[in-house]
């Protein structure tokens, strides 16, 4: 197969042959080696328009979809202006994955359910029937049950982009809100709503919010390199002691990455006291509908959100060393 040289050619290959689009290849390659996906992979052409970070005249920032995760997490300008994005991107996976993986690939990767990724099982996600995780081991699954598939969405960058109300460009389709990539999570056959041949080309972030402070954290068992049980990101601006802007989102909790307006509403216009932060974080649990093995995630969601809120407004809990 010849490498397509344009986006139209790549889309045509997908339509003709059933191939899957490949960006950095971290997920597409692993799925093929594991026998989860059988179709060929077709490389998205590395066009200049799909790569790089561009400040635009209207104050917004455009990031090409094939920009590497490490490129954006290490970018000094982004670190200054969009700290929620760079901290999230810098905390996911491992250095090599961040080097190989791309912004677009991170947003559109397939879920990590160990039933979906095990060739012994068939489920809604791979065109079959039923969800073996519901009747099996779903310790890592959703705590907000959006529909038949309970695999949490794996994209960390998506929650950061949700907290910014970022926009995305899709070749031949136009511009969407990042939330529109995912919908309501009720379709168990997919992890995003783009058709196989639709190519995500860029993400556009709104103009930076002066005075924004941000934090990202994930609950995991090891020091790193692990899919989060729960992850959360918070952007907060505090002016004269009052929260004047907030963007909060969480992952690991539902089939889609979720923005948490209920948390933001509990913060806006208020003084970020420990009590207010706790109340706001608790609001994150209102939507929870835990599965038998994910009840622990209700409080863990609250506490992960609380953690990033505290870090974002600068009232971190004392560490063990300071406490001792």
């Amino acid at each position: 197969m010849n490498q397509p040289l344009t986006l139209d050619e790549a889309a045509a290959v997908v339509l003709d042959s059933g191939a899957e689009l490949r960006a950095g290849g971290t997920d597409t390659t692993a799925r093929r080696r594991g026998g989860v996906t059988r179709s060929a992979a077709v490389q998205i052409p590395l066009l200049p328009a799909l790569h790089g970070i561009t400040r635009q005249a209207d104050g917004t920032t455009r990031i090409g979809a094939l920009t590497g995760v490490a490129e954006l997490s290490d970018d000094a300008g982004l670190q200054a202006d969009y700290p929620a994005l760079t901290r999230t991107a810098g905390a996911l996976a491992t250095p090599q994955i961040r080097t190989a993986g791309t912004l677009g690939g991170n947003l559109l990767q397939h879920n990590r359910c160990w039933y979906y990724r095990n060739p012994h099982f068939s489920c809604y996600r791979d065109g079959g029937e039923g969800c073996p995780a519901r009747t099996g081991i779903h310790l890592h699954a959703a705590v907000i049950d959006q529909g038949p598939c309970i695999a949490p969405h794996p994209s960390s960058i998506a929650i950061a982009l949700l907290s910014y109300d970022a926009r995305i460009d899709v070749h031949e389709l136009g511009t969407l809100n990042v939330a529109d990539l995912y919908g309501d999570g009720s379709d168990p056959t997919r992890d995003h709503l783009l058709a196989p041949q639709q190519i995500l080309t860029a993400v556009t972030l709104p103009a930076p919010l002066p005075g924004e402070r941000a934090a990202y954290n994930r609950a995991i068992s090891r020091a790193g390199a692990e899919w989060p049980l729960v992850e959360a990101v918070a952007r907060v601006r505090v002016s004269d002691g009052i929260v004047t802007a907030a963007g909060v989102a969480a992952g690991g909790i539902a089939h889609t990455p979720l923005r948490l307006p209920e948390v933001e509403d509990a913060l806006l216009g208020r003084e970020p006291t420990p009590e207010i932060l706790f109340t706001a974080a608790t609001a994150a649990t209102e939507r929870c509908s835990p599965l038998p093995q994910t009840r622990y995630k209700v409080e863990l969601l609250r506490d992960t959100v609380l953690d990033v809120l505290e870090k974002a407004v600068g009232v971190e809990a004392p560490t063990g060393a300071e406490n001792a």
């Binding site: 490949r22 290849g25 971290t26 390659t29 692993a30 490389q43 090599q96 994955i97 080097t99």
Partner: peptide
């Protein structure tokens, strides 16, 4: 740049 060769397409 260090990369994991198991996920890097040979064509890349």
């Amino acid at each position: 740049v260090p990369k994991v060769a198991c996920l890097t397409p040979a064509a890349a």
